[in-house]
Design a protein around this nucleic acid. Structure first.
Lengths: 256, 256
DNA sequence: TTCTGCATTCGGTCTGACCAACTGCTGTAT
DNA sequence: ATACAGCAGTTGGTCAGACCGAATGCAGAA
């Protein structure tokens, strides 16, 4: 294990500082912009001063401000619309998922570790969903499941709905944080999911989903947890039998 | 709940695209750099071409490259050393924690939701730690605890060691992912922790820690889980009694 | 062989300029 | 009075070229 003491980014102010070296001007500018947002209690959608203006305020060139802006944009703190200006963005789940995804893909963790955490989360989530799901939740879940049954053959669609099925369960807990975590952890398993579905949802996957859905509908937490545990475990054991492709990462076709 | 369908950043390539509008040159540049890293199988510490060089390769100005670099740096994908060059960085836990921290601070979630997840994680972690902790883990844990006992009065030190105590338990699970999650979730609770400790670690906190440590040392998962549950619940119920400061976020003293 | 030192490379910052997208005001036509 | 077309100002996006200080590496001196 390489991690240790420090590096926990306690969160208390001064985000953009460098690990060791003194912060650059644009780091400081980024912090100042962040402070501007916090101190003025700006919320999502609110507009910030223009780049030129910020530069003037901070006493730095536009170049520096722009770089600070890029950093903030990367962190999803602000959002920029050419022609209009800078606006405060919602640091949404996607930002978290993305960095977690980047982290998981960096290869420090092996499948078993990710799986262990995923199992914990999903099983617990299933239980909570069974407790708390409203009629609409159950309804939506049932719809996705029904659609998936029809999608034997369409791998893409099936994979998408598989993921959706799990997300909806997380959503039914009423606690968005579960969804964020699932998206984060789950994202690295998307490829696996796709492979697992192979040439369409396998009967066992569908059966397991059906059982989960059934237990949630019946508001039976223990049953739901058990069903989910079986399901997750099934996917995992399938994975372990695979000839270790170690999810080869290919760069997706960018834009350009 | 505002989130829904999309926004799950499946992770497959083309990260830096904008939500709607066509990507800017620096977005494309960022993706290209990322591709460069992936395609050449560069790993942590490897050096990238200089900014000027990259600009030439991509046919864009240095300005564009620099902004792309800032974005990548913000995401912890690369690291830059003035005078030397750009290097591939480790997308470490800190990056994840930071974005999660930013997200939690954006105020979408209330204390109860965060607490619910924290409880799940920490309790589970305590159990795993009891199962898996090696002698050295227990030793380190005991040391931190012993030190904390002596720190009655020093709020800062106590808060730091309190956090450390919990981190070490997570570490003892042998699964870094738990540590990452704890750092992420826990970071937003740091302020609370500090307040909770008030004028130094309260006897009850220390007692609870002692009990947790004891159960981990005894390799008693159930006991450890129970002890941790009591501890977490204690902190939470204390919080609920507080006059709702809603953790006022003040901009930390940056650098400059 | 080792150490000193300078030329080179590399990132950090600044200035100033031009383009394209967007906003808002204005004056005209209805 | 209202609605719309169109211009002008604002704002981000990109470029060029320049200078600084820090880091690197090689060459010549000890």
């Amino acid at each position: 294990m390489t991690y240790d003491e420090g590096a926990m980014s306690s969160g208390q102010g001064a985000f953009f500082e460098r690990l060791v070296r003194e912060p650059t001007l644009s780091d400081k500018a980024a912090n100042m912009i962040l402070e501007t947002i916090l101190s003025r209690r700006l919320t999502v959608g609110d507009r910030l001063p223009s780049e030129r203006e910020l530069g003037e305020q901070f006493g730095v060139s536009r170049t520096v401000v722009r770089e600070a802006v890029r950093a903030l944009v990367a962190k999803r703190v602000i959002e920029v619309r050419s022609g209009s200006g800078l606006r405060v963005a919602a640091v949404d789940a996607a930002a978290v998922s993305e960095s977690m995804s980047l982290y998981l893909r960096s290869g420090t963790l092996d499948f078993e570790k990710v799986h262990e955490v995923r199992r914990l989360l999903e099983v617990h989530i299933a239980g909570l969903a069974a407790e708390r799901a409203g009629d609409e939740d159950v309804e939506r879940l049932a719809q996705v499941h029904k659609r998936m049954v029809r999608e034997v053959g369409d791998i893409e669609a099936a994979a998408r709905d598989d993921l959706k099925f799990h997300r909806m369960i997380a959503r039914a807990t009423g606690n968005e944080l579960y969804l964020v975590l699932m998206d984060s952890i789950g994202s690295s398993l998307v490829d696996i999911r796709r492979e697992n579905l192979g040439s369409g949802p396998t009967p066992s996957t569908l059966e397991q989903h059906a059982r989960i859905l059934d237990r949630i509908r019946a508001h039976d937490p223990d049953g739901a947890e058990e069903a989910m545990a079986d399901h997750i475990e099934g996917v995992a054991s399938w994975w372990r039998k695979q000839p270790q492709p170690l999810h080869e990462q290919r760069p997706g076709g960018a834009s350009a």
